[in-house]
């Protein structure tokens, strides 16, 4: 389900050649300007400072670290994800702005790694959110990290790195896996379904049993619309 290959890449039918050039420029800029949010969960974090600083210098490629999920393009998860952490990872992922990319670094994100037998560790990251790229290793060297990032850049430029759409298209699947782990009353502050509608990404997999379960207990998350109404509503004493 989470495999990149299964995602139908819908090529926008644009006849205007200028629009094509424009799209290409946008894709190029997206690939050359990547802000990463490193969610440093495990030991892999130690490989990032060398990748960023003078030895390998990620800024050459236009990659720089950012602080809050709103600003970031890449969610970099650098190690084992405990269940408690995973809640925060999902919260963070949902708050990021699309197009967004997830990179799992270290074996732990691929299959649990050395924490395979741990009761408190989420084994496969891509069951809970679409992952664009795994960089395996325990831990991968900075060269490998940069190599992986470059692959991602190529894919973004080619317009293939669209896994973020998968989260909206198959939200029910991901939510189901999350509910399995966190219980039925699991809810994030982000209203994913309304976002899917907003991006026109509502498809068969978006809604299902699990989202129905969510809706039963969900606290409303509609934005506080600006109201101009003057009619007197007596405040409840």
């Amino acid at each position: 389900m989470s495999s990149i290959k299964q995602i139908p890449v819908v090529e926008a039918k644009r006849t205007n050649p200028l629009a094509r050039v424009f799209d290409d420029l946008v894709r190029f800029c997206r690939s050359r300007s990547l802000f990463i949010l490193h969610y440093c969960t495990g030991c892999g974090a130690i490989e990032l400072p060398p990748a960023m600083t003078s030895r390998f210098d990620m800024e050459r490629l236009g990659i720089q670290p950012m602080v809050s999920p709103r600003q970031a393009d890449i969610l970099l998860i650098t190690g084992y994800v405990s269940i408690k952490t995973l809640k925060r990872v999902i919260l963070t992922y949902e708050q990021m702005g699309s197009p967004k990319y997830v990179i799992g670094i270290c074996s732990c994100t691929v299959n649990g790694g050395m924490y395979w037998q741990s009761y408190a560790t989420a084994k496969k990251l891509d069951e809970y959110m679409p992952v664009d790229l795994y960089i395996a290793g325990c831990m991968p060297r900075p060269e490998a990290v940069i190599e992986g990032l470059q692959q991602l850049m190529d894919r973004i430029h080619a317009g293939e790195a669209n896994s973020w759409e998968d989260y909206y298209r198959n939200y029910d699947y991901y939510l189901g896996n999350q509910q399995k782990l966190f219980g039925e009353d699991w809810q994030t502050p982000t209203d994913v379904i309304s976002e899917a509608k907003h991006y026109d990404l509502l498809s068969n997999g978006t809604l299902g049993d699990h989202t129905r379960l969510l809706e039963q207990h969900q606290k409303p998350l509609e934005a506080l619309e600006m109201r101009l109404g003057h009619e007197q509503k007596e405040p409840a004493k």
Partner: peptide
């Protein structure tokens, strides 16, 4: 100063174009 290479010439432009072309605008 940090003995790095630094960003390419058009990096500020890339950043601005990319940010304005994001799908999500929260």
């Amino acid at each position: 100063l940090q003995r790095r290479v630094g960003p390419p010439f058009f990096q500020p432009l890339y950043d601005i174009v990319k940010l304005h072309s994001k799908r999500t605008q929260v």
